[in-house]
């Protein structure tokens, strides 16, 4: 994208011809510094709160202890990591094809009015608060699953609600990247007599690949970080699930459930899981950056 280089229009000596310009720039720099430093503050404070327990029991305790029982000085996070990982994987595996198909539908199958209506609907889905998804899951979905296989609050319920929540993310990103596919490609494909599915599968999807990757990374981050909805429908039993109908507890739900009464090392252990979440998000952000750089 072409961006005007504003600064070059104003050589430095003219820049501060006006005293107020000088003041303005430094004021703005100060405000930007605050905005830029928030993420460092978050990292710093999570570290500060997490350090006591890390120093006392070490990192390995969080993966090797017998169970999650902070009162008894057991800090095994593995069941919660499974909980987060499985709900995330299930939701991403479901939402990715659904979202890509939705975006393709908007671009190549639906007539204009229907496409824009559907886009608006997806945007509305994106705006529904997670607590409302959770509430709906709790009063509608969980009883349904309960009839199928008790107890109802389960990994399956979590995956279902999470899929709905991350679907808009992948759909909107995929939609934007399909919009960037050069029309010449499509004309070329038509001229060669390719079928419509052939055009999509061999021309459209490969040329939108990097955008789709970015979408998957974004939805993964959203799925890992989601708290309220999974907290309300997953049952929150600390266990590694054997089936899709077993209740699970995610890392985020664990924090939300126990922060209210956690003290000392227990509280500190919850900050360790927050740090773990933040770490994963930073890795995902770097991955997104790399995909972006690869593309350009």
């Amino acid at each position: 994208m072409w961006k005007p280089k504003t600064l070059s229009l104003f050589p430095l000596r003219n820049w501060f011809k006006y005293r107020k310009d000088f003041l303005l720039v430094w004021l703005l720099r100060g405000l930007s510094a605050i905005a830029g430093i928030v993420i460092l503050l978050i990292l710093g404070f999570l570290l500060r709160e997490a350090l006591p327990v890390l120093e006392e029991v070490g990192i390995t305790a969080f993966f090797r202890d017998d169970s999650w029982n902070p009162g008894e000085k057991s800090y095994n996070l593995v069941p919660m990591i499974w909980g987060t990982g499985l709900t995330m994987m299930g939701a991403v595996l479901l939402a990715t094809p659904l979202g890509i198909v939705s975006a393709l539908f908007c671009h190549y199958y639906a007539p204009m009015p229907i496409a824009s209506l559907y886009r608006r609907l997806i945007e509305l889905l994106a705006g529904i608060p997670s607590v409302v998804y959770g509430f709906w899951g709790l009063v509608v979905l969980v009883p349904l699953i309960n009839r199928l296989h008790p107890p109802g609050t389960s990994l399956l319920a979590g995956i279902a609600v999470l899929t709905l929540m991350i679907l808009p993310t992948i759909t909107l990103v995929a939609d934007a990247s399909f919009a960037k596919v050069p029309p010449e490609y499509l004309m070329g494909a038509a001229a060669m007599g390719l079928s419509s599915w052939g055009t999509i599968w061999q021309i459209v999807i490969p040329s939108a690949k990097s955008g789709l990757f970015t979408g998957v990374i974004l939805e993964t981050g959203r799925a890992i970080g989601e708290t309220m909805a999974v907290l309300m429908v997953c049952g929150n039993v600390v266990q590694t699930p054997d089936s899709i109908f077993d209740p699970v507890r995610t890392l985020t739900a664990n924090i939300a459930l126990e922060m209210a009464y956690a003290l000392d090392n227990h509280r500190s252990a919850l900050f360790v899981s927050g740090l773990l979440l933040l770490g994963v998000i930073i890795v995902l952000a770097i991955a997104a950056e790399l995909v972006d750089r690869e593309a350009s």
């Binding site: 978050i42 970080g225 989601e226 708290t227 939300a256 922060m259 933040l278 998000i281």
Partner: peptide, 13 residues
Amino acid sequence: VLAGVPSIVFGLF
């Protein structure tokens, strides 16, 4: 990065 931070982490912070 800040845009991707989960809300519960904001809560902890």
